[in-house]
């Protein structure tokens, strides 16, 4: 058992830094799934006599204009941000993987058409693209995730295609054909694993970008509506007390940064360097 574990660890190159890199995201997921474990306070119900209180031992991150506990709201808000970011990345991967593979494996015409399309989309800044989609489908938490996911498709497609083209040109792919493997055998055994592994690591990096994009759009007011605890929205609401209650904007921002950094760390941890 012990040796089996050791062999598994060796095969997948599991090292302490790698495990540490996964930790922050695991923490985030735990908080998102069971925020109640970390805070007993209700994120929605405020105490009218505890309005705009500075951070203290009872309210670690202070309270807002309705007397709601900011720490509790941040804990409960993590689900919305995290699930939306994951949904966004999942949507973009779902569309981009087939497109990228087709552009990398297909003939000149198909590949040229996909790339030209991607270039056209990439010319529009992602935020403008997401905002346009939102104009089309309306605001809301899921819509934001959808908009952000679609906006990232072009970038992902290009990235996957670049990887596929790189792997296709390697000597080991040529060698695989040489020992009698068919085109699809080579695609399945060598091209897909070797091109998608770095692409997936970059996808986790994009999880951080998605978190930022989502909170930006929520900050602009197109995400869920109050009183939902959402980090970007909390910062918008906190702006009215900019000069007096710094904790209303500072802590949700730190939560966003923590999540984005956690995604960065995760992508470094799962990166495969063959």
């Amino acid at each position: 058992m012990n040796t089996a574990l050791a062999r598994w660890r060796q095969r997948h190159d599991v090292t302490l830094p790698r495990l540490l890199g996964v930790l922050p995201v695991l923490m985030l997921v735990l908080v998102a799934l069971c925020p109640g474990l970390f805070t007993p306070l209700d994120p929605l119900a405020g105490q009218t006599d505890e309005r705009l209180m500075a951070p203290s031992a009872t309210h670690w991150f202070g309270t807002d204009q309705f007397g709601r506990d900011v720490f509790s709201r941040i804990m409960h808000g993590s689900f919305s941000t995290l699930s939306a970011a994951m949904l966004a990345v999942a949507i973009s991967l779902l569309v981009a993987i087939p497109l990228g593979l087709a552009a990398g494996l297909g003939g000149r015409r198909l590949s040229g058409a996909i790339l030209a399309g991607a270039d056209m989309v990439l010319a529009i800044p992602e935020l403008f693209l997401s905002l346009s989609i939102i104009t089309l489908i309306g605001p809301g938490a899921t819509h934001v995730a959808f908009a952000v996911g679609i906006s990232q498709v072009a970038g992902f497609t290009r990235m996957i295609r670049t990887e596929v083209v790189r792997v296709r040109a390697t000597e080991y792919v040529e060698a695989a054909f040489g020992i009698g493997s068919t085109f699809w055998q080579v695609v399945w055994r060598h091209i897909v694993p070797n091109s998608l592994a770095p692409a997936l690591s970059l996808a986790t990096l994009r999880l951080g970008t998605a978190i930022l994009a989502i909170s930006t759009i929520c900050f602009l007011g197109y995400g869920p509506s109050p009183p939902t605890p959402e980090w970007g929205l909390m910062i918008t609401e906190g702006r009215n007390y900019l000069a007096t209650a710094w904790w209303l904007t500072t802590f949700p921002g730190l939560a966003i940064i923590f999540s984005a950094w956690a995604a960065t760390l995760l992508s470094r941890a799962i990166r495969m360097d063959p």
């Binding site: 390697t170 000597e171 080991y172 040529e174 060698a175 695989a176 055994r189 060598h190 694993p193 070797n194 592994a197 495969m272 063959p274």
Partner: peptide, 8 residues
């Protein structure tokens, strides 16, 4: 030979 083998 190194580059003629799939690194994975």
């Amino acid at each position: 030979p190194h580059v003629s083998f799939d690194p994975r």
